[in-house]
Design a protein around this nucleic acid. Structure first.
Lengths: 192, 192
DNA sequence: CCCTGCTTGACACTTAGTGCCATCGGAGGC
DNA sequence: GCCTCCGATGGCACTAAGTGTCAAGCAGGG
């Protein structure tokens, strides 16, 4: 009940922030503007988000967790590249639900230094998670063998390249298709 | 003459900042402390550095430029992986000049979220630069062909893994050797 | 000697982010 | 129906990062 209410405020705040940030840019939008639009106090904002960046970045953390779960659920015999590609489908589907919003968010994130930096940091975290999962699947020791780490890095970079290209094209191309292309063009086949 | 003086102040400021940041941590060190140690005013600090993060991050930009120049100077026929590895020797040498300081700096950077994020952003910039240079060497069109981008990403990730491992080991191992190992363990050979 | 250009310090101001406390409103016990 | 407890909120004060502005100091050059 209280939980429900909290969720409402969170969405109101997130929605107002997203709208303003996408319109005015990250640096030019102040938290006072956001809370005014959402109808709560400044102090309340910081009870829902750790920082201004956090409004945009938080959901990436959940997304990463879902991808990790998806990877863990892939069949054991599947090659690493295919497994990661499949796990990423989750994000691909998310994007196609509301392409316009996804493109706006992506451009905001990739176009704002502070946000881009945070995005990369989150991605590095995900990469580490993927690496331990890949190591578990292959039976390698991730502390001494960097191969799974490198494989995860390569796969995520393919995703990165795809994301940039997709957003640059305004989201008109099919994300899944470009992603497959990127994986195919990888300077390795990621099949072990 | 004025230029000389400016350089002195810059080094004084950078040195004081580095010492304090390494000792007290990034968040716990205030700019007031830094300028007090360096003997200049708060305002002057911001005439030399854009932000607190900048003190640590600026030199990465120069480093990146040097690496790009080094890559451009490699013989045309050399495979991409070998060329990048060779270009990175520059950084390897820089590290071995003062290992203790390098390790401290690395740990500070990788251990502080804000700095790590900026580091990754700089690295992404370098990656883009490497990609256009690789494309130029291979005659590919970087706007449509993501292969050079992916190759650069893979190589830098090998560097990343190496850096983390080297810093974790306290800088006792030989950086160049671990870097070679990482490149050898890459899930691809980067030879085209 | 004075003029010019550059660097610096001081002050004021905006904004992000945090700690603290008073208040309000709903859920449940009597 | 009333009281109580608890979580959410708002307001206030405070620290710290940055930025704009201006006046003073300090070179070198005519």
């Amino acid at each position: 009940m209280a939980e429900r209410k909290r969720q409402v405020v969170r969405e109101e705040l997130g929605g107002a922030a997203l709208r303003l940030l996408a319109t005015n840019g990250f640096e030019c939008t102040t938290i006072d503007q956001i809370v005014a639009a959402a109808g709560v106090s400044r102090r309340t904002f910081f009870r829902y988000f750790k920082s201004k960046e956090d409004v945009i970045i938080v959901f990436l953390g959940d997304l990463g967790k879902f991808v990790l779960e998806a990877l863990a659920a892939r069949p054991a015999g599947e090659p690493p590249g295919a497994a990661i590609r499949a796990a990423l489908s989750l994000i691909v589907d998310g994007f196609s639900e509301d392409p316009a919003k996804s493109v706006a968010l992506t451009n905001l994130m990739l176009g704002t230094p502070a946000l881009r930096a945070r995005y990369l940091d989150r991605q590095a975290e995900l990469q580490a998670g993927l690496a331990v999962e890949l190591a578990r699947r292959s039976g390698a020791d991730p502390t001494t063998d960097p191969r799974s780490d490198l494989t995860a890095a390569v796969a995520l970079k393919a995703f990165d390249v795809t994301l940039a290209r997709w957003a640059a094209g305004g989201g008109t191309e099919d994300f899944g298709t470009i992603l497959d292309e990127s994986f195919a063009l990888l300077p390795t086949r990621l099949d072990r």
